[in-house]
Design a protein around this nucleic acid. Structure first.
Length: 485
DNA sequence: TTTTGAGTTGTTCGA
DNA sequence: GTCGAACAACTCAAA
């Protein structure tokens, strides 16, 4: 019998929600008071501490979580420091008898959490951890031999073969608070928001962090867009994707909840649980799952190319090129549009992420780690697993590597997926007056057309910083050099 | 153990 | 303008 008088610590991490939250449900079920808490632990995350955009999101997500917890009877205690020490301290302060949390799967987190769990249990506390961020545990989806899968298609088939993931848990109606709440830091004192300068205006306009915002976005996507997802998800000028990635990263919404909601919506529309749009969408949810699997089984994923031969690749130290790429000044409109969308909104459309990443890696021959680092700092959905796995995928050194000759042509990609230039005109307004026929290759425009559009190449918009055809051949040569590695 | 078929997202060239 | 072939070799997963 648990000591129902002693409080339970409920440690929030990347599960900033009330619905489908197994740790929350377990803490509530213990019957005693529950102390909900969040620890800002920069030390343990090391150089993986959240980037600027992520910190902005975290601030707002915590604020919303605090409000919703207050509505069911408790408050969110904020503490800063090494998680081990903070937890230990709180156990002493409150006389807690149990700690509940939902698992994280990053290598540094699994190591740390294991230590914490041992330490708490040695002190006689009950510790329970749960899966709240994946459809299945990383060790549950395997080949028939029981080994981790390294190719997406078999992974996706294996997930589907398991049937539906567990049903989402309901939101508890009440979470009893202790008589005296522990002290809490002030969220503002954590200084997660940018101040001088405040660059977060575009983020504020674009996003609604928090569980309510996440659920609203899912609703809207399932109502309006999922039906056409398969056909339109590659068109960055449309709002055809779910844009749930940051909400998923912070655990404001559960992938199991998404799975069941998407299937129910499909069934309501078409009498089948997986119409084409839904199947396509859920397979993307599974890509996230696959990336987490890869990171779990390959702790080096963020640092080392999975295909080790790529560690000997003749990468270039192109500081200027990297800088131009970061600022959206490469001279290739589709690349620049994407990089500016990223800078202003903390997010980039998936198709454009591939184009922009391919440009940095294949056209500039800059190491994928530099691209991953920039994305880590600027993306609101920056996720160690997805970011690392995706950059490696584009580079061709990932588990499920693209063929070496798959090098995106930024002009063709722009014309193919942004044919009416809606996207490029939105993010690269200085060339918006060019006609569709040349807007993806301004240097090909006739002088008169440029003049009429008010463009002085090299002054109001850059010439291409590399010639793609030349760069492509250079990349193919470079790739040859590691073939026999 | 060996074999076999397959592997998210592309581009270019020449007929 | 359209279409099919070529662009390599390797690793993975299952039979």
């Amino acid at each position: 019998m648990p000591d129902t008088a002693a409080p339970t610590l409920l440690w929030f991490r990347r599960d900033l929600r009330l619905h489908d939250n197994p740790a929350l449900t377990a803490a509530a079920a213990r019957g005693g008071p529950v102390i909900a808490m969040f620890i800002l632990d920069d030390a343990d995350a090391g150089d993986r501490r959240p980037g600027g955009a992520s910190r902005w999101w975290l601030h707002h997500s915590l604020a919303r979580l605090g409000e919703t917890l207050a509505r069911i009877g408790t408050r969110l205690v904020l503490r800063r420091g090494r998680a081990e020490y903070v937890l230990s301290r709180l156990v002493e302060e409150t006389g807690a008898a149990a700690v509940c949390w939902n698992r994280r799967y990053e290598p540094w987190a699994t190591a740390r959490d294991g230590r914490i769990k041992d330490g708490l249990r040695k002190r006689g506390l009950e510790v329970q951890s749960f899966n709240a961020s994946l459809l299945y545990e990383p060790w549950e989806v395997t080949s028939k031999q029981g080994t981790p899968l390294k190719v997406f298609s078999p992974f996706w088939r294996a997930v589907q073969a398991k049937g539906d993931p567990a049903d989402p848990l309901p939101v508890p109606t009440r979470l009893p608070a202790p008589d005296t709440a522990p002290d809490s830091d002030s969220l503002d004192d954590w200084a997660l928001l940018p101040t001088a300068p405040d660059w977060a205006g575009g983020l504020r306009e674009t996003w609604t962090p928090g569980e309510a915002g996440a659920l609203a976005r899912l609703d809207r996507f399932l109502d309006e867009a999922v039906g056409g997802y398969k056909a339109k998800r590659d068109i960055p000028g449309t709002a055809a994707t779910s844009a749930l990635s940051p909400h998923l990263h912070f655990g404001e919404i559960s992938p199991r909840f998404i799975w069941h909601a998407a299937r129910a919506a499909s069934e309501a529309r078409s009498n089948e649980p997986m119409d084409r749009g839904t199947a396509s969408f859920l397979s993307e949810i599974c890509w996230r799952e696959f990336s987490h699997n890869l990171l779990f089984h390959n702790p080096d994923l963020p640092e080392l190319s999975l295909r080790r031969a790529f560690e000997d690749f003749p990468w270039r130290e192109d500081i200027e090129g990297l800088r131009a790429w970061q600022r959206g000044l490469t001279g290739y409109p589709i690349v620049d549009a994407g990089m500016r969308e990223l800078w202003q909104t903390g997010w980039m459309h998936n198709r454009v992420r591939m184009i922009a990443a391919s440009f940095l890696i294949k056209d500039l021959l800059v190491h994928w780690r530099h691209g991953a680092a920039w994305f880590w700092d600027t993306l609101v959905d920056a996720d160690l697993a997805s970011n690392s796995a995706s950059w490696q995928w584009v580079a061709g050194c990932g588990a499920d590597a693209a063929p070496y000759f798959r090098i995106f042509n930024p002009v063709l990609q722009g014309e193919k997926f942004d044919g009416d230039a809606t996207y490029v005109r939105r993010w690269v307004p200085e060339i918006a007056a060019l006609p569709d026929s040349v807007i993806h290759k301004p240097w090909m425009a006739k002088p008169l057309a440029l003049a009429e559009a008010g463009i002085a190449l090299g002054r109001t918009y850059p010439y291409p910083i590399v010639d793609h055809a030349t760069a492509r051949n250079r990349a193919l040569e470079a790739l040859k050099s590691i073939k026999k590695g």
